[in-house]
Design a protein around this nucleic acid. Structure first.
Lengths: 356, 356
DNA sequence: CTGTTAGCGCTTTCAC
DNA sequence: GTGAAAGCGCTAACAG
């Protein structure tokens, strides 16, 4: 094979040498400071042309070292394969880049130990700020991390009592909407398959579940609140258990999109059908939600907005070097009604329906 | 609020000063070269303890500048919200990290101009290597990029005639499997909704489509090969058009998962049902594929393997500073048969069935 | 309008 | 066994 010898300059020094001028001038022109330093247009043009001709790209690592800022953001997500998070990641990357920042992306694998390591890794790599979708219930490692003074913004969850700005869905309100709809459709025996207990996302959704029940004079049966993980498997197992009860629920409120996929699998296997035999509402809408066996009624989270605001807040934080630590933004989700909920008109009849 | 004064060392110099030894020694210990330089165990321990106590984390930017390697990889993906790519991204990030590399993630938004800029950006950020899932038909920008000497590996597609290692699905074989199954099920009027024309992924799949038809003595009707984009919208539009033909196909082969979602939407709207009125097979399996209105028969790509091998090849490339540019790995996909294809037993009857 | 030079934090050669 | 000092490529303070 035959290779062309390209004109190349690997650094400012070489470029300056070729042009017979100083590195300072080259640096200034390249950073758009020609005007500020009253560099002659001739020199300016010369530099720009040479940079192009010699295929010169500045070394951002060196720049980062000198400036003590890397124009890089860190993003830590529990599971990028989860479409909820991948949508968010997309917007975060786009918004970051739009503002001149690159993104170091890390998947914490839903593991708090990994998350802790990742935080340190990003610090070590001198990112200018971090967007974190935290995992687990503990926040000790976050308190520790705070001391390092790196701007940090939390999304998806929030940690009460910890001074870190957060942007989340208003999970309580979403749960209330879903439950009111279920109750209005005549359901009284409603199961709630929850995710990881003890974290805000889950707490808030369960609280919404309970409050609507109570407000409507329906006794809360704790045995109908089950599960402990946002994954598919948990949805599957809990549904199998729920459906084998003597008094199975007439509706299931699945607290995540992955859980709802598990619910679907279990219901499928049991030979039951939605919504005739069992109704279901799921948290978090997905592109495929409307193409499911029965188009799923979901609580749609404002993913794009969360991501946009997170980047904006983080960038302000970085620029000002500080932020009101009480910054906490909760965005309202939206109930999307499709066909996974059956309207039960005759409550008496339904209460007496033979157990499967 | 009350803040503890933490012991802190922001760099090696400070740490060395505190310990009353030289930065050289500190650096050596911290890099596990204590033995090599026969540093006394006492000194070694002292350094390690101090590093922990003073919460010292090395500045990887400075290290990168000095070593001329950043232990950072770049990943460029056309659309991280596409579950096919998000699965791949997950594995790539995991594998990279396992080998001590971080990942700068970039979404090219399916835009070749953006892709070009991103390549330069990553070069400027001195990543040690790049995994690219390319966009568009042109590869001029890749040829240009090659000259910069940064290890680059391509996934998902391959660019014939361009000396860059690639790891892809064997798209031809996947298409053949799907088509053979469709034909064996009695289908003769099979539409093919393709993605972006002219790129290898699409070419190979369409070639499989044609070959199977020909091999089975079924004339290829070019008007049944439509579409020009891997997105949902294209699937929708083409299906609407196809189904309004005088002689609508009895089966649709959708060349991507997003296309198949569009097919579903169109079929839904038309009031038709799968597989009774129309059969469909889609490229690329998804977690939800089996929960769709009719569980979808799909060609499952070995996403995890592609990602793993890509990282492995790239790392070898980086370590050796070179690679056999003819490295091209094609992984066999697997046909997953579910319930979206109808078995047409009486061909005669089917050929005469009234047009809807 | 342009240039000299110090120094960001690290690793490593060379010296003892 | 340990250390002094050069230098990675860049920016900016200071100097003209």
């Amino acid at each position: 094979m035959y290779l062309f010898m390209e004109k190349k300059a690997k650094n400012i020094k070489e470029l300056a040498a070729v042009l017979g001028i100083s590195v300072t001038t080259v640096s200034r022109v390249l950073n758009g400071k020609a005007d500020k330093y009253r560099i002659s247009p001739a020199t300016g043009k010369k530099v720009l042309d040479a940079a192009r001709e010699f295929n010169y790209y500045p070394n951002r690592i060196a720049r980062g070292l000198r400036l003590e800022k890397t124009e890089t953001l860190g993003l830590i997500i529990p599971d990028i394969a989860n479409p909820f998070f991948s949508s968010i990641a997309k917007t975060i990357e786009f918004e970051s880049r739009r503002h001149g920042y690159s993104l170091i992306f890390c998947d914490s694998l839903d593991d708090i130990q990994t998350e802790t390591e990742l935080l340190n890794l990003l610090a070590s790599r001198k990112v200018d700020g971090i967007v974190l979708a935290p995992v687990g219930q503990s926040n000790k490692h976050l308190m520790d991390f705070l001391k390092r003074g790196i701007p940090l913004v939390i999304i998806d969850r929030h940690m009460p009592g910890i001074p870190i700005p957060y942007i989340t869905t208003d999970n309580y309100s979403g749960a209330v909407d879903a439950m009111e709809y279920l109750v209005a459709s005549g359901h009284r025996t409603i199961a709630c398959i929850q995710g990881l207990r003890g974290i805000s996302v889950n707490n808030d959704r369960v609280r919404g579940y309970r409050d609507v029940l109570i407000r409507n004079g329906i006794p809360v049966d704790n045995s109908l609140i089950s599960g402990d993980d946002f994954g598919e498997e948990n949805g599957y197992i809990q549904t199998r258990i729920l459906m084998s009860r003597e008094d199975p629920p007439t509706a299931i409120f699945a607290l995540s999109n992955l859980i709802s996929l598990g619910v679907l699998r279990a219901i499928n296997e049991t030979g039951l059908s939605i919504p005739d035999d069992i109704s279901v509402v799921a948290f978090d809408d997905q592109p495929y939600s409307s193409f499911l066996a029965s188009p799923m009624t979901t609580v749609d989270q404002p993913k794009e907005e969360i991501a946009k605001i997170a980047v904006k807040v983080l960038l302000d934080y970085i620029r000002n070097g500080s932020i009101d630590m009480d910054t906490g933004i909760m965005l309202k989700p939206k109930l999307i009604i499709r066909k996974s909920v059956k309207r039960i008109t005759d409550r008496h009849d339904q209460a007496q329906r033979p157990h499967v």
